[in-house]
Structure formats: C-alpha cells, structure tokens
Amino acid sequence: MQMQSSWYERIAAPRSSTCLACSRTIPYYGDLEELKAEQWRRSLCPSCVERIPFIEEVGCSSCGRHIRCEDCQRQPLQQYGLAYNRSVVQYQEHMKEWLALCKFKGNQSIAFVMAGMMIEQYMPLSLTAKVNKPTRSSSDWWSMLKEWWNPESIIEYPDLVTYVPSSLERLEERGFNQAELLAGTLAKAWGRPLLNCLDRTRDTGKQSQQSRAGREQSLEGTFTWNQAAFQGIRFYMARQLKPYLHILLVDDVYTTGSTIRACARALQDGLRELHIQGMVSSYTWARA
C-alpha cells in the first residue's frame, strides 16, 4: 500500500518546471515574468542552451552576418540610412522552431528568452565579460558606435528603441507583434524610451515566400513615420539637450535586410523633417 505524502514532504519537495524549447524537466526558479531578462538560461534546459548558434565571429561588419555578405556589397546599408545591423544567433533550423513557437503558436515566453539573449549580447565589453565570454560582435559594435558619435561618450545604450511594425492583419491573426515584445523588453532593461516610430501602410504578405526583388518592390513606401512619434522625439530632444539621436530598430530576423532597410529609410526621412541629426542602427535576434 502506497502511503500518501505528508504536507511537509509536499512543501519541502523541490519544484520543477519544463524547458520552454523542448519541454524537458528543469529546476523551477520562479515564474518567468519575475525573472530578470539576464536569467533567460533558467527557462531552458542545458542541452537547448548548448545548441544555441551564437554569432561569435562577425564576417560582415555591416550587417553582422557570421560569414562574408555579398548582399551588403550590392546594397550597402549606409545608402538607406542604416549605420549597421547586429544579430545574436544564426537562423538555423532549431532557431526557426523557436521563432515558430512564438509567432505561430502564441508562446510569448519564448520572446522573453530571445530578448534576454539580445540584452546579454548587446552589453558593452566590460559588462559582457561578467556574464559570458565577450564576442567579437558585441565589442566591435560598441567600438563603432562610440567612434561614430563620440569616442569619449559614456552613453552605452541607444537614446530611443523602436521596432518594425506589424500589419493590422498580422496583429489580428497573432494577437501581438513579436518585434514589439523584444523591443519593449530591451527598452525596459536599459531604462530607455520605447517609441512606436513607424506605421505600416499595408500588408505585404509573408516576405519569406517572395523573391529578393519581390521583397524590395513590395516594401517600397510601406513604412511611414507615426505622427505621434514626432512629438515624443521633440520632447525627448528638448529634455536631453543633445544635437544628435541614436535610434535602435528592433526586429526578430534579418533575412535579406529588405524590411530593415525600408524602415531605416523611413526613420531617416522623419529625422530630416525634424531637422535632427540621427543615426539608425538595427538589432535583430537572428541573422539568416
């Protein structure tokens, strides 16, 4: 006869949870919402953490790809007003599975994990060393940022964080914009304003099902400045008394860069209308 466990045994027994990626049993550290973004590893099993294909060596200093990029040679990001892009992971098959859990199955907790990875990898070299072995992607990016603005600058994060907007159809279908979730977590962690700078004028369909030329054509004129953002930026600039502005554009995946480039061009158009000198850089979770 099996004895029923006592109330003390039930309370004292260690609690367990499941890995967000593969559902294996892992120790319970608390509700995900209560964890700090830097603790994203605690929501995954060691095996899933080990399989993450971090971009540890940057092959293209422009788009942040782990290998040499011919796209940037054909279409330099700078001509679209984008300083450069950086990404955290290579968009391999199991990373595609993670994103599918978020975008198509509504698992927003995965977005928290993705954002935690982005926060960790974006840290300046001095801070990254405390968490993980510093990568060339993080150190090179910070060197370029400081060199572009002011080598003596002590500002270590962007002035404003924004994101690639989703169409109304996608919002109704999914109930959320994963790029906004990522950007919101980053902005909160850094104590920076999150501003919805762009509107999407139409649904261009799934970019993954279009050719390179088709993506460029379908995205032309798709993004425009959100007029409410003008007032937000004017207010921010008045308080900061700064002659320049660094806007960080956030998205989930950089594939051909068509979407990021179109957004960067729209952002630069708005900054010119405001007569503000500004740099736009982008940060995505994955790079194809």
Rank of each mutant, 00 (worst) to 15 (best):
Q4L: 14
I11F: 12
S23G: 00
P27Q: 10
Y29T: 12
G30I: 11
L32R: 11
K36H: 14
S43A: 15
L44Q: 00
S47N: 11
P53S: 04
F54R: 12
F54H: 04
S61L: 09
S62H: 08
C63T: 03
G64K: 00
C69P: 02
C69Q: 03
D71P: 01
Q75Y: 08
L77A: 12
Y80E: 09
G81S: 04
N85P: 10
R86D: 02
V88I: 15
G106L: 09
N107P: 02
V113N: 03
A115Q: 07
G116E: 07
E120I: 04
P124W: 00
N132A: 13
K133F: 11
K133N: 13
W141D: 03
S143I: 11
E147F: 10
E147Q: 15
N150T: 07
P151Q: 07
E156P: 01
Y163Q: 06
P165W: 04
P165Y: 07
L171T: 08
L182Q: 07
A183W: 08
G184T: 06
G184A: 02
A187G: 00
A187N: 04
G191L: 02
R202M: 03
D203R: 00
S208W: 03
A213L: 13
R215G: 05
T222R: 08
F230A: 10
Q231T: 13
G232Y: 02
A238H: 14
P243M: 06
V253Y: 04
T256Y: 09
T259L: 07
I260N: 08
A262P: 02
A264D: 05
R265M: 13
Q268V: 14
Q268P: 09
D269A: 14
G270V: 12
L271G: 03
E273Q: 15
G278A: 15
Y283C: 10
